[in-house]
Write a protein that binds this DNA or RNA. Structure first.
Lengths: 221, 221
DNA sequence: GAACAGCATTCTGTATACAAACTAGATTGT
DNA sequence: ACAATCTAGTTTGTATACAGAATGCTGTTC
């Protein structure tokens, strides 16, 4: 029976799978599991204190989201991308991120402005402190705040899925404290564009932001 | 052990889950399972001649793709959308479909042209025959050919996922034979735009095509 | 020393079991 | 006659078992 390792108060059945899925998504996105690395089911059962069944269900969901890929013969491994594949993923990501920026600019509420500004303040604080883990989390929250500002959860969902898939590759470009500061500063222009009345400028600005992110990511992958 | 009901030649282990996933995706997308309908796991084991484990894994993957949603207490049900949610999904779909059309127009190869034309010929044939199931399949293949023409499998993937999620709602607008013919004819202008050298016109044309599809879908949902 | 073959161990896809939760129907009380 | 409660059956989340396939290690031969 479950050994309560990492076991939290849950709201009903089924949340075991969700908990494992969320934990693995965050780790893979943060680069804690290497691209191409094979996932050991038994190790995960020990770690989460559950049987293989909920672990396998969580892995299955990550396969459906492209975060894990089926092994050639059996099992699953962390998705890894060639340079060409990374370029293609970023191209798709560009499109949806630009659309998010445009729609967010069109629909910006006061609450959304405040949330984006708060998220950016967290980014700045983490960057100035040179706190890489905190910056990765704050950067994520910043982009999620922009997605949320679109008022469209489905656009937010696919943008988040792309962000999850590319998290490991993108995390590599934050290797020095000045990388964090440069990234946080690059948010300023983007925020200005989103807060402006020109939604097309916001969209273009996001494309430029993503193009720069792509160049930096490609340089370290 | 598996009773070979719907059992096909498979290439190794794991394909049981994929087979069930593909079959359920196609049925839900074609509207064979009603939105909101609860999925009975035991019935699926009988139908596919397997145990609950691969059925549950397939269901788990469909949950990750938003085609099924977790029930309030337990189990899963077919995703169903309010008018507002349908509008939001179509908005996200518009963005990615328009991007696909633009990129397809930019990168059109001779092979892609021929495949799109062949797919459209199938649409016309099915429409003229008043064959609704054949038209649904041909329409699907037509749009997949456009996605493929982008040369970007990740853009194709998310476009396909949106198409899967909205399949049931969109299928309802093909209730009369003249609906099929009108839809097939609306493809002609779209093809002309994609085949033109103006990728922005292709993008705009796809937005118009999707806007019309949305209006028709909303009228019957 | 290297390569190949065989054997053992490990891992995973799927089957089955178990327990808990949910639902439906029947019975009882007002 | 209607509403509430109880019971039984069904469904599902998770645990465990089993069998087959894959991988790794060891020994032998060239």
């Amino acid at each position: 029976m479950a050994k309560a390792v990492e076991k939290q108060a849950t709201s009903g059945r089924g949340s075991t799978v969700q908990r494992i899925e969320a934990a693995l998504t965050a780790e893979i996105s943060a680069g804690a599991l290497a691209p191409g690395e094979r996932i050991d089911e038994v190790k995960l059962t020990e770690r989460f204190g559950v049987s293989r069944t909920p672990v396998r269900e969580a892995l299955s969901r990550l396969v459906a989201q492209g975060i894990l890929i089926p092994g050639e013969k059996r099992g699953v491994r962390v998705a890894e991308y060639s340079r060409e594949q990374l370029a293609q993923i970023f191209e798709a990501m560009h499109e949806i991120e630009a659309a998010c920026a445009r729609v967010a600019a069109q629909r910006l509420t006061l609450l959304a402005r405040v949330e984006i500004e708060a998220a950016q303040a967290n980014c700045m604080a983490a960057a100035k402190a040179g706190d890489r883990p905190a910056y990765l989390a704050a950067n994520e929250a910043f982009h999620l705040a922009i997605y949320k500002a679109t008022g469209n959860p489905y656009m937010a969902e696919i943008a988040s899925e792309f962000r999850n898939r590319t998290g490991a590759a993108r995390a590599k470009k934050f290797s020095k404290p000045e990388d964090l500061l440069a990234s946080a500063k690059s948010h300023e222009k983007l925020i200005a564009l989103i807060f402006s009345e020109d939604s097309n400028a916001a969209s273009d600005g996001m494309r430029e932001h993503m193009a720069r992110s792509f160049r930096e990511t490609l340089a370290v992958n």
